[in-house]
Design a protein around this nucleic acid. Sequence first.
DNA 1: GCCGTTTTCGGCCCGACTGTTTTCAGTCG
Length: 576
Amino acid sequence: MNNPGIAGMLHQLADYLEIEGENPFRVNAWRRAARAVENSRIPVVDMLDRLENLPGVGKGTAAVIREMATTGTAQVLEDLKRRIPPGLPVLLGIPGLGPKSLHLLHRELGISDLRDLVQAAEEGKIRNLPGFGVKKEQKLLEAIRKLGSRPNRRLLAEARQLADVVLRKLAGHPAVVRIEPAGSLRRGKETVKDLDFVVATEHPKEAGEAILAVSEVKEVTAKGDTKITVELEADGIRMSADFRLVAPEKFASAWLHFTGSAAHNVRIRQRAKELGWKVSEYGISDDRSGEERTFASEEAFYRALGLPYIEPELREDQGEFEAAEQNGLPDLIRPDDVRGDLHMHTVWSDGAETVYEMAVAARERGYEYIAVTDHSRSLRVAYGLSVDELMKQWEEIDRVNRELEGITVLKGAEVDILADGSLDYPDEILERLDVVIASVHSRLGLDEETMTDRILRAIKHPYVHIIGHPTGRLLGRRDPCKLDLDRLFRTAADTGTILELNADPRRLDLGDQLLRRACEEYGTLFVISSDAHSSAGLDRMAYGVITARRAWLEKRNVLNTLPLAELRKRLRKGRP
DNA sequence: GCCGTTTTCGGCCCGACTGTTTTCAGTCG
């Protein structure tokens, strides 16, 4: 039983209890426990004797987690399942329908699944329930119609793209003093559910009108004096967005509040409370004097609580407060620390541009070096290079290096790890390459032991520098390969093999949690690579850097922050 | 159900919006 599985069951348990009308604080306790399991970087099956160390896990939840980990379920959960129809909890996913209403619908109308609910609404039975009316009934049907019509979460890059369109349109408006994105987009989570914007304004009415006038606003969900919720759509990406309107002097407090995460905010509030203060999204007030304080910046807000500035990517209540108190916050890697990009494709395989064009584009981005790493011969779908073609490409790379000043092009390859763990070019070719990335592109469904052995063989290979997109996941589309990651991380650290953080927003592989685990527990080294297939693709590096920051990585953990000469020394591995 | 150097009880973030009410309940983040 893995962590996501156990966390899922705990959430399920919370849902059932909520529908039964259980005390909301108790329900929340189960949710907290679920999040603690989700966020634990150690599999809980490996820490069954010290589960109570997890935040929000006490005796009761620990016992249930233990039961789930060993038997695959828990008696309390099974009992609830027997009492409550299985079709009911999924209805909590309908926007606007919460546990209280669901409880009422079940009790009064005997509704036990989606079909019952639609039927009752269409027959006009719901409008007569206390607290309901015609409008709520209609909204419910509307929400059900929209259900599943779009993905629940979008890729970080898609969210960023949509947000940028809106930001560009509103930033210059006379009623808008400042507008910034907040929420999980600002924290750089790999997927984003909805967008949050904080708007500083002296004229909320005009600012609100400006927001509604943006052509990407397709629907207004809610509109008040300080908060507007809309549906945005551009380039086929549709997302819900909240705009919060605040006076300029309250902007910093609101930005902090709406950046979250919720767990981080809880800690902020607790901390303020210990000092006799109360935090709201508008600032800090003194419990006794009632005095209100606002802040010119987030830095000032944190300072008032006796804390150093905490970067948005760290605000997950994953140890950032403890680190801050001990002056141990990481000096996070920054975009301009990156000196080169070691994974990209050209027209030689499945890329869109030439070696020269990629080199020029990389130089424009301030890079000192790149590695051209086209696919190897077995990857037919991506026009993988034969040995002959590879050697011809070297001539072209030599030519580009002679012609171009200010950037060095390294000879590389993204070599397939074949099903048995052997590599797709002979050793005498690999030996002559500056950068060898070994990646799995086929037979992704092998069992854990076979897959682990396969990748370990590549990691131990003397000419392999980097393991590309180590888990093979595609966000929202393909699960990670089954792998013994601890063995993989340990072996990579022992052999000096570098793990890739592939910055393709569909991959972000390794992801933030695994990066942090590999770094903190094994001291593994990383490169961040764009895996670009065109010059525009080089800009995906930004998503890699933000993911690295979420993993608490510093410049020293990431080798493509090194100057070329030092990088070359690090790439010596296995060579005489 | 969890938590705690104001600790074994009594809190647990709290403000905004909608639709139902006619002062508030439910939902959301």
